[in-house]
């Protein structure tokens, strides 16, 4: 690609970076649409208006917790209960954001701040595995394009779900439940092929997560502990700085 050519970094224009970001964000879009549609349908059934359910996607932008909230609203749970459950479920983004922001040290806080608000499991996974753009001149644009692609799909999909109801046949929508897992696998596998120790870090995290779930911990905390302690195995396993 252009990166290999003479004066590599400088040849990448803003438009190139945005285009590459949209391409990298496309799998997230594919994975988000069915979930966003499902959320829209559930939220509508829970008694939320189209405006309310779309606004929730605009200002919260966290799929699992929005689905949970729609369910809790449907069964008449209290506001505080819903908000605390959301915090517990989304606290994992603190750990991910710390890792992401540490990579973007060269980017100014005026960019980094708004970008951090677009961090989800999926945008983090895609941005974090495209490390070389962090060192390139217009790299922040690349990451922003990934995030906005995902955000647009999420907000638009929620709205559509609320307006249209069940548009995807059940058979297909349940099959699409694997989309984001397949994306995570599609991102992780090439890294493991390149450096098998990366696979050990991931498996350690899987086992810790599974153990926590077995012990009856909530999904949110189990993922936090799996990520934090699984990541610690990397301190020993990934000795050499991976550029």
């Amino acid at each position: 690609m252009e990166g290999e050519t003479f004066t590599g970094k400088r040849t990448a224009t803003s438009a190139d970076m945005v285009k590459r970001g949209i391409a990298a964000g496309f799998p997230i879009m594919l994975g988000y649409l069915p979930i966003a549609l499902t959320y829209g349908v559930l939220a509508k059934q829970a008694g939320m208006s189209i405006l309310e359910l779309t606004m929730m996607s605009v200002v919260v932008f966290a799929g699992a917790s929005q689905l949970m909230a729609a369910n809790m609203i449907a069964v008449g749970a209290g506001a505080l209960e819903i908000i605390i459950a959301t915090f517990v479920l989304n606290f994992r983004h603190f750990v991910m954001s710390l890792s992401f922001m540490n990579r973007l040290r060269t980017v100014s806080l005026r960019w980094k701040g708004p970008m951090s608000l677009g961090l989800t499991d999926e945008t983090f996974a895609v941005t974090a595995l495209h490390t070389k753009e962090a060192k390139q001149e217009k790299g922040a644009l690349f990451y922003t394009a990934i995030i906005l692609t995902a955000y647009a799909a999420w907000v638009f999909g929620s709205f559509l779900g609320g307006v249209l109801g069940e548009v995807i046949p059940e058979q297909l929508s349940q099959s699409m439940g694997i989309a984001l897992y397949a994306m995570f696998i599609g991102l992780l596998t090439p890294s493991v092929k390149k450096e098998w120790r990366v696979g050990l870090v991931a498996v350690t995290a899987m086992l810790i997560n599974a153990l926590c779930v077995q012990l009856g911990m909530s999904t949110g905390w189990a993922i936090v502990l799996g990520t934090v302690f699984g990541g610690m195995s990397g301190i020993f396993l990934l000795k050499e700085e991976r550029k």
Partner: peptide, 13 residues
Amino acid sequence: LNAIPYAALGALI
């Protein structure tokens, strides 16, 4: 922090 993405992917999968 550099290992976090791989751990997070593992835990999410």
